[in-house]
Design a protein around this nucleic acid. Structure first.
Lengths: 221, 221
DNA sequence: TGTACATCAGTGAACGCGCGTTCACTGATGTAC
DNA sequence: TGTACATCAGTGAACGCGCGTTCACTGATGTAC
C-alpha cells in the first residue's frame, strides 16, 4: 500500500462524492443509503463501515464545503483571489448553467432548508463551510470597514442563494432568467468598490432582455 | 346547508392548512399523507376524495400563497399597503421569530428547493404566488422606473429568502442573528427611496450588536 | 309522520415497495514463520 | 517457497417500519313520497 490513501479511504471518498451529488440532485430525504452505495457500485450493508448513520453522512458531505463544487474548485485551480475570485464566482453562481445543474452546484440552495432541520453536527459542519465562504467573499470586497465588509458578504451570499432558490422553483424560464439577472445586477453594487451604496452601475435593465439560453432540462442525469 | 362552505369543503381546507404547516416544519418529502390526515383527525384513505395525489396537495398548498402565513395575513388585515407594507413585512420576515417559526412562516425558505424538484403544476403554483408577492413589493418601492422596480423587488425577495435559509442552517445563534441583521440593513438600501444606490443609510453595523433574543428551539410544536 | 331509498364523507385493511440499520458471513489480501 | 493464520472491506438477507395509493365497506345525513 504505497498509496497515500488506503483502499477503504478511497471508498469513503467515493461514497462522499456520490452522496454529495445525489443529495443535491434529489434532496437529502429523498435519497436512500442504497442509492448512494449503488452509485459507488457497492451494497447498502457496507455503508456502516464508513459512516455511523445517514445523518453522519450529511454532516460529512457538508464538511467538504465547496470541494465537490467544480465552480469553486476551478476558481482556486486558476489561482484567483480577492476581487477577481468574487466577481468570477458571482457570475458563475448566478448563471443559468448553475440553476440547471444543481447536482454539481452549490450545496446551499439545494440543501439549505434540510440542513435547517438536521441535527447539530450537520448544522455545525454547514456553519463552518459557510464561514469559510464568507471569509473568501470578505477578502474580495473593496470595503475598508470590516464590520461593513462582513455585512456585505453575508448579504451577497444571501441574495445569491435566494436567487437560485427562486430561479429553480419558478416554472417560466424567462422569469427565472430575470431573477438571476436582477441578482447579478445588485451584487455588483454590494461588491464595491468603496462605500457599498456609491459608485455602482445602475441595476435594473438586465432582467428585461430576453436571454435565450437553450431548453432547461427538468432533471440532470 | 345554509353554510357558505359544505362539509367536504371545510375538510379540504383543514387538510390544506395542516399540510401547509407540516410541510413547512418537516419538509414535503418527510411528511406523510397519514401524518397530514391524522393532524386533521382523519385516516389516510379519505385523502384521495380531496386530492388526486400528494404532489397535487403540494401544488394546492403553494397555490394558497401567503394565506397560511400570519405575517402576511396580518399586514393585510391591518390595511397596510405601499411602502408601509414592504417595510413592515421586511422587518418581520427578517426577524429571529420568523427564523424560529418556519411552520407558520413563509413557504419559500422552507420548501423552495423541494419545489425546484417538484412537477410542473407545483412549480406553476409557486410561480403564481411569487408573482403576486413581487407585485406587492413593487408597489411599495419608491422607484420610478418600472424595470428597476421589478429588478429591485426580485433582489429584495431573493435576499430575504436566502438570509432565512442561511440563518436557519447555521448552528450558532449569534451568527444567525448577524445574517438577519445584515439582510435587514441592505434591504433598506433596495427599498428606496429613489435611486437604489443613493440616499441609503449605511448598512454594516447592525450585524455586530449582540441581540439576545431568547433561546432558539430546535423544533416548534 | 313514517318509511324506503340515494348520496356521500370517511374507514380501515391491504397492495407492493423502499426506508435505515444490523449482523453473521465470505473471500481476498497481508503477515509470520 | 509454502503453509497457517489474521485482518478487513464488503455481501446479502433480514429486522420493523412507514410510504403513497386503492377499494370494498360503513354509517350518517338528506330526499321522496
Amino acid at each position: 500500500m504505497a498509496d497515500g490513501q488506503g483502499r477503504k479511504e478511497q471508498t469513503r471518498e467515493a461514497i462522499l462524492r456520490a452522496a454529495s451529488t445525489l443529495f443535491r440532485r434529489d434532496g437529502y430525504h429523498a435519497t436512500g443509503v442504497d442509492k448512494v452505495m449503488a452509485a459507488v457500485g457497492l451494497t447498502a450493508g457496507g455503508f456502516y463501515a464508513h459512516f455511523r448513520s445517514k445523518s453522519d453522512l450529511l454532516a460529512a458531505v457538508l464538511g467538504r464545503g465547496g470541494r465537490d463544487v467544480p465552480m469553486f474548485a476551478a476558481a482556486d485551480a486558476a489561482g484567483l483571489d480577492g476581487v477577481d475570485w468574487v466577481r468570477t464566482l458571482a457570475d458563475q453562481y448566478l448563471s443559468p448553467a448553475h440553476r440547471d445543474g444543481p447536482a454539481t452546484g452549490c450545496l446551499i440552495p439545494a440543501l439549505g432548508p434540510e440542513v435547517g432541520r438536521a441535527d447539530p453536527a450537520a448544522r455545525a459542519a454547514f456553519e463552518a463551510a459557510l464561514r469559510g465562504l464568507v471569509r473568501r467573499v470578505v477578502d474580495g470586497l473593496a470595503v475598508a470597514d470590516s464590520d461593513r465588509a462582513s455585512s456585505n458578504a453575508l448579504a451577497i451570499i444571501a441574495m445569491a442563494v435566494g436567487a437560485q432558490v427562486l430561479a429553480r422553483g419558478v416554472a417560466d424560464e424567462a422569469l427565472s432568467d430575470q431573477i438571476l439577472a436582477a441578482a447579478r445586477g445588485h451584487l455588483e453594487t454590494l461588491i464595491g468598490p468603496g462605500h457599498p451604496t456609491r459608485d455602482a452601475p445602475p441595476p435594473g435593465r438586465q432582467g428585461q432582455r430576453p436571454r435565450k439560453q437553450g431548453r432547461r432540462p427538468k432533471r440532470e442525469s
